[in-house]
């Protein structure tokens, strides 16, 4: 693989969601694609308690040459990939900037406070509006719904990875994805993953 110059170095991506959504896997797969393409990647993750309903965030730093900190400085995200809608807003509040691009999976996972009726979950239109006003470019996907059609809601994260590839801001394509997936997963699951990836890519490129 040939290593192209990045549009920005380091290129800062935050993948966010809720424990159990496959956030960690998404960041590993995507970063694996970049390492395979020849880049240096640092992923910063907070897990441990993440399976217990908390917000999960992976910081991905992509560089042609250097190891960057596993924590992105505040206000310095270039791309935010939210597998859950309000998590997009939570991350924007800390890491947003006028040039940031945002991809949002619109399937909510309600926090306990919302389930109990103590807190309010913002309406989808309100989330869209806030994301648009705080970003340079945004896409809203029904990744979980698409994944359910493919037979497994967890594939929502792969739909989102496909969408990132479709944005064209990083030199990764379906070929690299396939290579990484084939190495890391049982053969039986490869086909569904490839289709999820293609669906996400199509949403952004159409």
């Amino acid at each position: 693989m040939t290593k192209q110059l990045l549009v920005k170095d380091p290129y800062n991506i935050i993948i966010t969601g809720v424990g159990g959504q496959g956030n960690v896997l998404a960041s590993r797969v995507f970063s694996g694609m970049l390492v395979r393409t020849g880049y240096r990647v640092t992923i910063g993750e907070t897990f441990g308690m993440s399976q217990r309903g908390g917000s999960v965030m992976s910081h991905i730093r992509v560089s042609a040459a250097k190891v960057w900190s596993p924590q992105i400085p505040k206000g310095r995200a270039d791309l935010i990939v939210a597998i859950e809608p309000v998590e997009a807003l939570r991350v924007l509040a800390d890491y947003g900037n006028p040039a940031v691009k945002v991809l949002v999976n619109m399937r909510p996972i309600y926090p306990v406070g919302v389930i109990t009726g103590e807190a309010e979950y913002p309406a989808p239109e309100k989330i869209r509006e806030a994301v648009r006003s705080l970003s340079a470019l945004s896409f809203f996907l029904d990744a979980t719904d698409e994944a359910v059609k493919l037979g497994n809601p967890i594939l929502g994260n792969i739909v989102m990875i496909g969408a990132v590839a479709g944005l064209g801001v990083l030199p990764v394509d379906q070929g690299v994805f396939e290579t990484v997936i084939r190495e890391g997963m049982p053969a039986s699951r490869v086909e569904a993953n490839l289709r999820a990836f293609a669906i996400g890519m199509a949403v952004v490129t159409k």
Partner: peptide
């Protein structure tokens, strides 16, 4: 103006408390 918009997010995003699965 961007900082102003960021401030408007305050109170909109519900907390995610940790709990048993």
């Amino acid at each position: 103006v961007y900082n102003e918009k960021l401030r408007s997010l305050a109170g909109v995003v519900p907390q995610r408390e940790q709990t048993f699965c």
